[in-house]
Amino acid sequence: MTAIDTISQREAEVVEEFALFDEWLDKYEHIIELGKSLSGVDPEFRTDHWKVKGCQSQVWLQPGTEGDLVVFKADSDAAITKGLVALMVRVLSGQPAEAIARAPLGFLESIGLREHLSPTRANGLASMVKQMKLYAAAMSGRGNEGGQDG
């Protein structure tokens, strides 16, 4: 990881990437493609306990740590949701807990996905982001113990 690998740097990359698409269909096809690259969660995390509430589709979120950084794995049974989830993992995973907890995530607006963050949207992206931030906040609260969340 280089020094410029911050959340806002990753957001800028995503915005640049999405600027290629004028058509909604192309944009969603790209989101779906992103989802296909998602590695999914470990089998013991594919349970109700690790499911994010408030999604019409199912989303599983697996938090962990690598050194001082928070890492996420995630999965969904719906293609678009999985793509959105992949996008969030790409932007947030492997970043310091405090940065995750504070990230304003303005890029969703820039790439025209702001509506997906509305709490009334059935995809539960808002719940997913909230859950990622909660895990991050919990981990930063624990200081530098560096333990595995379980």
Binding site: Y28, S57, A79, I80
Partner: peptide, 21 residues
Amino acid sequence: GIHHYDAGMFLDQMGIAVRTG
């Protein structure tokens, strides 16, 4: 092979309001 949520999202983009879930 298609989740109802994905289908609903695509139909919405085409101006078609159906209910999914």
